[in-house]
Computed example of a mutant assay.
Amino acid sequence: MFPLLRRGPGRLTRRPARPSGDGTAVLPDVRETPEWNAGPAPGALHLPLSRLMAGAPLPAAVRGRPVITTCRSGHRSQQAARLPARRGVRATDVTGGMTARARADLPVTGRGGSGGVTA
Rank of each mutant, 00 (worst) to 15 (best):
H46N: 09
R87L: 12
C71F: 13
A80R: 00
A119W: 09
C71G: 11
P84W: 04
G88P: 01
L83D: 06
P40W: 05
P48D: 04
T33Y: 14
A60L: 08
R18M: 13
A17W: 05
V108P: 04
L49F: 05
G23L: 01
V89R: 02
V94K: 01
A41E: 08
P28I: 12
T109G: 11
P16Y: 00
P107W: 01
P9N: 00
T24A: 02
P48H: 04
R101V: 09
A17D: 02
G23I: 05
A61L: 11
R103Y: 14
G21H: 09
S50P: 04
R72L: 14
M53A: 15
P19R: 10
V26H: 00
G64Y: 08
A56V: 12
G113D: 12
Q79L: 15
L49K: 14
G21N: 09
S20Q: 03
P84K: 04
P57I: 03
A17S: 14
A119P: 14
D93K: 06
T99W: 02
V94C: 04
M98Q: 06
A104M: 04
A85Q: 06
V62F: 09
G110P: 03
A80T: 10
D29Y: 02
A25K: 06
P9Q: 05
R82C: 03
G74C: 03
L52R: 04
D93T: 12
L45Q: 05
